[in-house]
């Protein structure tokens, strides 16, 4: 088995410490060794809309580093996941693009021969650890909680990269069920968080977040579980802003899935970064 290099991306290390802390803790409990790689930089996603080739090389640079270290990549951010997966796939299937890429990477002393595989942490838990093994580690089943899953977009799409039907997603549902919590269905389950256009039109982005929160709250969920730092910015960091814009008072805890799983494993809240959650999620179990 190859080693797993931990790809943090741009958002997680400065705005998603609760995600990072809880993912590391949960991985430790499950015996997953995540190796930190300080040379990983931006995945390229923020540049893609403006300069596709530059963005492609940014992704390729990270893939080259992983290949050199002899590991695959495990990600926390869904946009990093889709961007790196897409570039890895293209390099595996398009020899001309591979040549073009290596011509540029040579200038910074890097090279790609066998593009590494990239997997989102949640998908790694589902595929490589498996629901049964996760259940075995649960010490404190969260049976009193009702949780709504938010998959986000880039964890599922483009679907040819991930093999899960984006119209009927199921992996996060099952991962939540494994903690003992009850999963609740809601109408806007597949709605995007709006994060990518927050800087383009805040009104539209917040309206999307409001729609999602309204739908989740309407089903009586105790919390929303998610797996992408930008989705968390929309629903957790900006929940108060949504409230003041729409005159609502959602008070809906937003949890990173590893925080939820960590609770079920019996890891104390203090070790799962709950103090970083903007909407108070401490004491969810009390």
């Amino acid at each position: 088995m190859s080693s797993h290099l931990f790809f943090l991306g741009c958002t997680v290390p400065v705005r998603g410490q609760n995600y990072e802390l809880s993912a590391r803790k949960v991985a430790e409990r499950l015996g997953i060794k995540l190796i930190d790689e300080p040379d990983f930089a931006c995945c390229g996603f923020p540049v893609r809309s403006s300069y596709e080739d530059t963005a492609f090389l940014l992704a390729a640079r990270n893939l080259a580093i992983a290949e050199e270290r002899g590991g695959d990549i495990i990600t926390l951010c869904s946009s990093c996941t889709a961007t790196l997966s897409e570039v890895s796939h293209r390099l595996r299937t398009d020899p001309d693009r591979l040549k073009w890429t290596n011509r540029h990477l040579k200038e910074i002393g890097k090279k790609i021969q066998h593009p590494v595989s990239v997997k989102h942490f949640a998908r790694f838990l589902y595929d490589e650890i498996g629901i049964e093994r996760i259940k075995e580690k649960v010490e404190r089943p969260l049976t009193q909680l009702t949780i709504a899953p938010h998959y986000g977009c880039h964890y599922l799409k483009p679907s040819h990269l991930f093999g899960e039907d984006p119209e009927i997603p199921h992996t996060l549902d099952e991962l939540i069920t494994a903690t003992g919590a009850r999963v609740v269905e809601y109408e806007e389950k597949k709605l995007c968080c709006g994060g990518a256009i927050l800087g383009i039109d805040e009104d539209v982005a917040l309206t999307m977040a409001h729609k999602k929160l309204t739908s989740v709250k309407g089903e009586g969920a105790d919390g929303l579980a998610l797996i992408c730092p930008f989705c968390a910015i929309m629903f957790d960091d900006l929940q108060r802003k949504v409230d003041s814009k729409f005159n609502t008072n959602f008070n809906l805890p937003i949890l990173y899935y590893p925080q939820l799983l960590g609770l079920a494993f019996g890891i104390p809240e203090t070790e799962l970064g709950f103090k970083f959650n903007k909407v108070k999620a401490k004491g969810l179990l009390s």
Binding site: C153, H154, K157, P158, C192, A196, D201
Partner: peptide
Amino acid sequence: WYCTTCNS
């Protein structure tokens, strides 16, 4: 510029 890149 308004595409959220959701891919739907």
